[in-house]
Design a protein around this nucleic acid. Sequence first.
DNA 1: AACCAGGACAATC
DNA 2: GATTGTCCTGGTT
Length: 336
Amino acid sequence: MGSTSPGVTTLPHSCLARPDPALLPPSRDPDTQSWGCPESPSPPATPEQPLPTFCLHYFDMLYSEDIAWATKGVGEPSQSGAHGGRGEAQKEPEQCPIIDSQGLGLGTEGGDLQASLHLEEHSLEQVQSMVVGEVLKDIETACKLLNIAADPADWSPGNVQKWILWTEHQYRLPQIGKSFQELSGKDLCAMSEEQFCQRSPACGDILHAHLDIWKSAAWMKEKAAPGDVRYCDASWADSEVDSSCAGQPIHLWQFLKELLLKPHNYGRFIRWLNKEKGIFKIEDSAQVARLWGIRKNRPAMNYDKLSRSIRQYYKKGIIRKPDISQRLVYQFVHPV
DNA sequence: AACCAGGACAATC
DNA sequence: GATTGTCCTGGTT
């Protein structure tokens, strides 16, 4: 553990910041239909464009976080209480797996500037904790979606496959295929970037970088003191109807409800038309089917099959067509 | 073309 | 046995 991964720090920005707009959890602003990248009129969206927080690439986020730790470790004696205090990081900030602070060029010398630097650091830190919170939140969302643990070390070979498939879709990576089959999360974590590249010359480095982010997130989660509010918006403990009862295979209707409960993330794919009556509309049948396929490890899933399964619920009285039947609109028989 | 309904059968747990 | 994935036919929007 704790091995640094120099490869990550040298990865081209564009490599990681290329999420599939269709799968990305998405615009933070439900009013704008902008998903960051898609119909943006200007040519290839540049990283500098005001993309939603989402398009900020994860590594940059964590990298910035490291700056905060680095500066904090040197220059800030106490005061952690106000911030919720990462007691531990205070003493001797252990090296976060993903981060290699080398060459950050951050020193505290330069007395005159110190006060203003302090201020900047302070606000920077606030932004950073928000950003890190977002990263953790997104990872958590992925965990729920895929029904896998947050810590890659806990993944079974099946979990690894799911994660790879998901990452591949999410970031539009070239087909990775079965190069990582039979590997557990622990095996994966123990692999170097070179070993990743051997298995997947096309995108082993990117995959390795993404895994590093997950490892870092797990590391942060573990290190954060209980009651630490810094990353609270990640809502790790948030148990809002997580229908995926541990270990139990999830049912399609549960999965649909899960998506419906996160309009923030999936409102573009599926949304309530009338929550009280349990009426919902599938806005993007292909994407919902794709998510379901990923969740169930059924790469061949499509809306045709998914809808057949929904129709099976008619007889069981779980889902039905609403009184006024509309395309892609269904109704939970027992809302709530 | 995409969606809908439902039969039939297989796979999986 | 329950659930759902797959394939299919045929109808509707």
